[in-house]
Structure formats: C-alpha cells, structure tokens
Simulated scan of single mutants.
Amino acid sequence: MIEAVAERLEGAPRQLRRRWSDELKAQAVAEALEPGASVSAIAHRIGIHPSQLFAWRRNARTDASPQRSAGAGASVRAAVAVVEIW
C-alpha cells in the first residue's frame, strides 16, 4: 500500500529515486534544529524516513566543523549550535 502525503514541501521531487535540492535539505535541517522540533513529524510531512533527516542533520554538523571551508551549505551551518562541555 502506498500512502500519498498531501502536504509535501514545495519542490519535493516525485520520481522513484529522489534527488533533494540543497535548499530543501537546508530548510528541513534548520527546522529540525529548532528547540522542541519533532524530527519524525518534519520527516513525515516532507515524505521521507526520519533516519534520512537525521543523516542530513549529522552531515550539516560535520560540514560546520572548523576544518571545512565556507561553501554551499553556509545556510545550514548558520543554524547549527555548538555546545562545549568542560
């Protein structure tokens, strides 16, 4: 059984193997990083598995490390918070 999701984000691809734009990923990651946000609910609304959104978040945090140069993911990097534990 295939379920149709009526409230997909604008620009969500419709083919079998989906290719998500960097802008759409950045928007979803920024929303998922908000305090109190439900990654599962956001993923369901977009039409992806929650593990995919968790992977995008992990990749955004990796890209935000100081060793990486500024580039295409700058909008995602701006949304990442750094927590230092002493």
Rank of each mutant, 00 (worst) to 15 (best):
S65M: 13
L33K: 01
M1E: 13
R18I: 06
R14D: 09
E3S: 15
R58E: 10
A37F: 04
I46G: 02
S69P: 06
L9K: 06
R17C: 06
A74W: 10
A74D: 12
S75I: 11
G71V: 04
L16V: 07
G36D: 09
R68Q: 15
Q67A: 12
R45S: 06
F54N: 11
H44I: 01
A30D: 08
D22I: 12
Q15S: 12
V83W: 08
L33R: 11
R77Y: 01
G47W: 01
W56K: 02
M1T: 14
A41M: 09
Q27H: 11
L9P: 06
G47D: 04
R8D: 06
R68E: 14
P50V: 00
W56S: 01
P50G: 03
V80C: 11
D22A: 11
E7I: 07
K25S: 03
S69L: 14
W20S: 02
R45N: 05
S75M: 11
I48Y: 00
A43S: 03
A79V: 08
N59A: 12
E84A: 10
R17F: 10
L16W: 09
V83Y: 07
P35D: 07
P50F: 00
G47R: 00
R68P: 00
S75A: 15
E10N: 07
S75V: 13
I42A: 01
V83N: 05
P66E: 09
S21H: 10
A72N: 11
M1D: 14
V82T: 14
I42V: 12
R68W: 06
E10G: 04
G11C: 04
A78Y: 05
L33N: 08
Q52R: 08
G71M: 07
G73K: 14
W56Q: 04
A32T: 01
D63F: 08
L24H: 05
K25H: 05
A26L: 02
R18T: 13
R57E: 03
V39Q: 13
R8G: 02
T62L: 13
A70Y: 04
G73R: 15
L33Y: 03
H49N: 07
L24K: 02
I2T: 13
T62H: 11
G36M: 10
A30Q: 14
I42P: 04
R57K: 15
R57F: 00
S21G: 15
W20T: 05
H49R: 05
A72P: 13
V29W: 03
S75N: 08
I42G: 01
E10W: 08
S21M: 09
V29T: 01
A32E: 02
E34L: 13
S40V: 08
A43T: 00
S38Q: 05
R19S: 12
R58T: 11
A4Q: 13
A64K: 03
S65D: 06
A79S: 15
F54P: 00
W20M: 04
A74H: 11
A70D: 13
N59R: 15
G71D: 12
W86E: 12
A4M: 07
Q52H: 09
G47C: 02
I85S: 08
Q52E: 03
M1C: 07
S65W: 01
L53W: 03
V29F: 04
L24C: 08
V82C: 00
R61C: 13
G11P: 01
A12G: 01
W86Q: 10
R8M: 09
D63E: 10
E3F: 09
R8Q: 14
K25Q: 15
F54V: 00
G73H: 10
A78R: 15
Q27G: 03
